[in-house]
């Protein structure tokens, strides 16, 4: 049976259809879960898509982390299920404390929307498990607050525990140590600023997101 992936939708999410289509195209079964839901029962993995949840009011993710569904995401993650936050979803996961650090306004204060190259710096996460170490991927970014920030103690832990899973080849936004994606200690919760769901078709510029989403779907199947 194909993996069942929840696409968590907040008021203001805007990449949920891209995520749904990409996950379905890769052989899993995706389904929207509205932010007021309180359970992720029956799902094998969960994706928090990009957008501007709750208008990004206060800070990106600051209000979304208190949505009812986030308690379910928390216990879903604690149970070891794969959870992926893309762009705004990454911001929500850091605000919720499911991932370390924070995403700050880009250096230069510009909204950046273009393709960029990231390299795989760890394969221990559910997102990068099917990729090769040092593999370079061309994936679009599309954000205003994507500059990954954390204090020195957190950074040292990230390095020591191999939690930095993607780095930009050329830093677009001022992220600490070129960080584009991090995972939690276990490796089942991952957040990234690039949009792999927009890179699953050569017709649209790149298929490099496939290896990431394939890994995530395979990891979801393993847990179920």
């Amino acid at each position: 049976m194909s993996a069942r992936i929840a696409i968590v939708v907040f008021p203001g999410s805007n990449c949920e259809y891209d995520a749904l289509d990409a996950v379905n195209a890769l052989g899993a079964t995706a389904q929207f879960v509205w932010h007021s839901e309180t359970s992720l029962d029956g799902f094998d993995g969960a994706v928090l898509p990009g957008g501007f949840a709750h208008g990004d009011y206060l800070r990106p993710g600051a209000i979304a982390r208190f949505s009812p569904v986030m308690s379910a995401v928390q216990s879903f993650a604690q149970a070891g299920n794969p959870v992926l936050g893309i762009c705004n979803g990454f911001q929500v996961l850091t605000e919720a404390g499911l991932l370390p650090g924070a995403l700050q306004k880009n250096r230069g204060l510009t909204f950046i929307s273009r393709s960029c190259t990231v390299s795989v710096t760890s394969t221990r996460s559910v997102l990068t498990r099917s990729a090769k170490l040092a593999q370079e991927l061309s994936i679009p970014i599309n954000h205003f607050s994507g500059s990954y920030t954390c204090d020195d103690a957190t950074y040292e832990q990230l390095v020591a525990r191999d939690q930095i899973v993607l780095r930009y080849r050329e830093n677009p936004n001022g992220s600490r140590d070129d960080i584009a994606a991090v995972c939690n200690e276990v490796g089942n919760v991952v957040g990234l600023m690039p949009h792999p769901e927009r890179a699953v078709s050569a017709l649209l510029g790149s298929e490099d997101g496939r290896v990431l989403l394939d890994g995530f779907i395979a990891a979801s199947q393993l847990v179920s």
Binding site: N106, R107, S147, D151, G174
Partner: peptide, 10 residues
């Protein structure tokens, strides 16, 4: 303090 502030710098 210690966290970069692009708005303040601008």
């Amino acid at each position: 303090s210690g966290i970069a502030d692009p708005e303040g710098a601008t």
